[in-house]
Nucleic acid binder design. Structure first.
Lengths: 349, 349
DNA sequence: TTGAAAGCGCTAACAG
DNA sequence: CTGTTAGCGCTTTCAA
């Protein structure tokens, strides 16, 4: 036996000894710093392989003051579910967050990073998120909020935490974000409905206290006005399937002769489809329906949904890229990247 | 100006000076070690508040050799999607993983922890996961696999990483897991179908190379046999909605007179509903349908699904509890916890 | 019950 | 181009 037991993993010191060089040199090789003799690099690499060395992140973080990690925060404004041991499923179970997570992971993974998943749906939870970031356990955060009034973006900005948002913040603040050209998307829907000959169109809107909800409505209204339809019946939903079903019923009562409807997201559109079916209206023969998002709901509906596609994964990827950029260069000024929607034509319109 | 600029966050040293004690004492107070004079404790706490001290996790990890963090790994066996910058949305977008994530976060958050989200859907990715854990960046992993042949559980076990699986591993290995009593669930479905008077029942199975798929089938068959129906027509699906739709069509061709069907998960059941509707069969009048999982699909279907509930969030929470237990006491022998399913009656049966 | 001191493994000046 | 050296902030014996 040697002086020390074989336990624990090898350190830089061990590799250095094996390679017959100093710790510093090994460190340089590992961190890809040039100015290292190629022969020595080889020797070091061999030594690393021989010892099975893996760097100790904590030690590195301690000196670099970087966690080499980012947080993926799913946030709400409410004070809903508290610790129970099984809550929060609701928010995370939303396929939308799955897509965001997929985009974030897709970007991070090739770079050897993985996000820390945090749920911030209460004041308490938001404080924890801020504390976590402040502690330096993650170098920054990508944040997707469900509610417009979410105070977390501002909290993080104030705390000096590099942050990138999904969607423009409702009140101006110096923070980067990615978003979709919602109005353009709504216009796509309007143009399609008009092009297929709809004479009386209506719309189920999203919650109007959310920017996306507003923008999709105004975009749709403007486009319809340009097509000579200044008045568009509307009914507000809250992005859930059930609310879409109810809103559609109200629309039908309000405008029995409607032959086209733009629903501000696919989930509500699925609800609208059920309502229409229950009322004996055929889709798309009697009523054409256009959704928004191109979520999984769009393809599982019958008929499948013609919808405005939001490239969520790409947006989440870009969000992550922006974050890493800011982390690397904290002096950077906030930016925004706006993505263009596209129309996906299926059966419903 | 003092000797050093005000930059950077305060350290233990600063707190100690402020409180007029030593670093060690402050450390003891922070870590809740007894044998510290109450008065001094107060002084220290005041000093902590005054300085706004937050512990540096990296420094702590360096000495404790604990990351105080766990990984939530979503794994597959395939070698599908590679780095592209937006992939992986598929797996994570599955509401099932959302529920798992919700359960894990629900358990972890009250304890001040947050999971690192990792996707392991290629050999490359699996190596990265193993490396990450081996590096000690996380103390252990909760793992949910999509495919039965996933080699990751074994890899982690071999690497000595504390691991807890969702679902029993297909080949025996010394690892803890939580699972559902699938056969009991299938029996619940059979009993319900028989009780409501179905004479000719069939079943759409899950993929039969997956334990859950097998168990649900054998459980259903056994129960039906006990009810005097030794033969049950079956069609295999792969847990996707589309496969359920196709399998249902095959079943209809095979047994045109069927009046009851057990579908091994809700997604396929939704597909079956569409197929039945297309064939002019009313549900539940002509054909009663029972699903499995009680996922969000179950309530968004029309008619809504009577289904066997799998308490995913609770299972994920328990999985996390087991993991923390193992991390705290690595000597512990592997255990398993089996949850009981319940029947949720809605409209389809 | 408290303090002094010795590192944990790594990076980053600074010499050579 | 490489080695020496000094910590990063914290926990933890070991004495007092």
């Amino acid at each position: 036996m040697s002086d020390k037991a074989v336990r624990s993993s090898p350190t830089l010191e061990d590799v250095a000894r094996e390679a017959g060089v100093s710790r510093a040199t090994v460190s340089r090789v590992i961190n890809g710093i040039r100015n290292v003799d190629p022969d020595i690099q080889d020797a070091v690499r061999r030594a690393i392989a021989a010892t099975g060395y893996v760097p100790n992140r904590a030690a590195r973080s301690l000196v670099t003051r970087r966690a080499d990690s980012v947080a993926l925060v799913v946030s709400g404004a409410g004070d809903e579910d508290h610790e129970a041991g099984g809550e929060g499923g609701g928010v995370l179970a939303d396929p939308f967050f799955g897509r965001v997570a997929g985009g974030v992971v897709g970007f991070l993974r090739p770079r050897g990073m993985h996000p820390v998943l945090m749920l911030a749906d209460s004041a308490e939870a938001r404080k924890e998120v801020t504390a976590y970031l402040t502690q330096g356990r993650a170098d920054g955060a990508v944040l997707a909020s469900t509610h417009a009034a979410d105070p977390l973006p501002r909290q993080l900005a104030d705390a000096g935490v590099p942050t990138v948002l999904f969607a423009r913040p409702p009140s101006p603040m110096p923070v980067s974000y990615v978003d979709l050209a919602h109005q353009d998307g709504a216009r796509l829907a309007a143009d399609h409905l008009v092009a297929r000959g709809c004479q009386q169109v209506a719309t189920v809107t999203g919650p109007l206290d959310v920017l996306a909800g507003q923008d999709r409505l105004t975009g749709f209204r403007d486009a319809m006005a340009r097509h000579g339809h200044p008045y568009v019946p509307t009914a507000e939903g809250n992005f859930t399937q059930e609310s879409g079903e109810r809103a559609m019923a109200r629309l039908l009562a309000q405008a029995p002769g409607l032959d086209g409807v733009f629903v501000a997201n696919d989930l509500m559109a699925a609800g609208a489809l059920h309502c229409l079916h229950a009322h004996g209206r055929r889709v798309p023969e009697d009523v054409a329906v256009v959704g928004f998002d191109d979520s999984s709901a769009a393809v599982s509906c019958r008929p499948s949904l013609t919808t405005v596609r939001q490239p969520v994964e790409a947006m989440a990827g870009e969000m992550t890229r922006l974050l890493l950029e800011r982390i690397a260069d904290p002096g950077l000024r906030p930016t925004s990247v706006i993505f263009d929607p596209t129309l996906v034509v299926r059966q419903s319109a």
